[in-house]
């Protein structure tokens, strides 16, 4: 067991996770803003007689704001994300406005999953999901890992957990 000072995670995610988040975020934002502008707006214009150009401006502003957030968020999130596996503790640190530092003891883990969505697969990325027993907040995710890294990390966790003798 390392000393208390070394309990700060240092490992970064794969840099291409920014691209992955951008693509994923762009897709959802496009769908959302598209729906709002091309479906929601005509409906409102037709059925609500108080609609005016002010609302048009507000809606357009909201759409562009959302788009801007989608573009800005991934690099910031990437810059903040750190994780580390210390043999008996899995550490992570992330968040832009709200910064969270999590520590999960390996002995408390119930199972470990590797999740790869279609876009993630395109980028050769994987997300590690760790479950603990408990009602609230019992799963922990580490996104943006290289596939081999993720598998290795999972195997290390399983190994650390697997012998079962405490």
């Amino acid at each position: 067991m390392s000393g208390e000072a070394s309990l700060r995670p240092e490992q970064r995610l794969q840099r291409r996770v920014i691209a992955y988040w951008l693509v994923g975020g762009a897709l959802t934002t496009t769908v959302l803003t598209g729906l709002a502008w091309f479906v929601g707006r005509p409906l409102l214009v037709e059925h609500w007689d108080k609609w005016s150009s002010t609302f048009d401006l507000v809606l357009a502003g909201a759409c562009f704001g959302l788009l801007a957030i989608t573009l800005i968020e991934p690099p910031l999130a990437y810059a903040r994300w750190r994780y580390a596996f210390l043999g008996d503790l899995l550490l992570m640190r992330y968040g832009i406005l709200f910064v969270e530092e999590r520590a999960v003891p390996v002995r408390r883990m119930q199972h470990v999953d590797l999740v790869r969505g279609p876009i993630e697969r395109l980028f050769g990325l994987a997300t590690l999901v760790v479950f603990t027993a408990g009602n609230e907040g019992s799963s922990f995710r580490v996104p943006g890992l290289g596939v081999t890294d993720a598998q290795e990390l999972r195997d290390r966790i399983v190994e650390a957990r697997g012998d079962g003798r405490l």
């Binding site: 968040g95 406005l97 709200f98 910064v99 999590r102 999960v104 408390r108 603990t132 027993a133 907040g137």
Partner: peptide
């Protein structure tokens, strides 16, 4: 089961943090 240190925008400014124990 897990420990979480969390800081919101105002806490970041004041150098504070919440600790949640699961």
């Amino acid at each position: 089961q897990a420990v979480v240190v969390r800081r919101g925008p105002l806490s970041l400014l004041l150098g504070l943090a919440d600790l949640t124990v699961y």
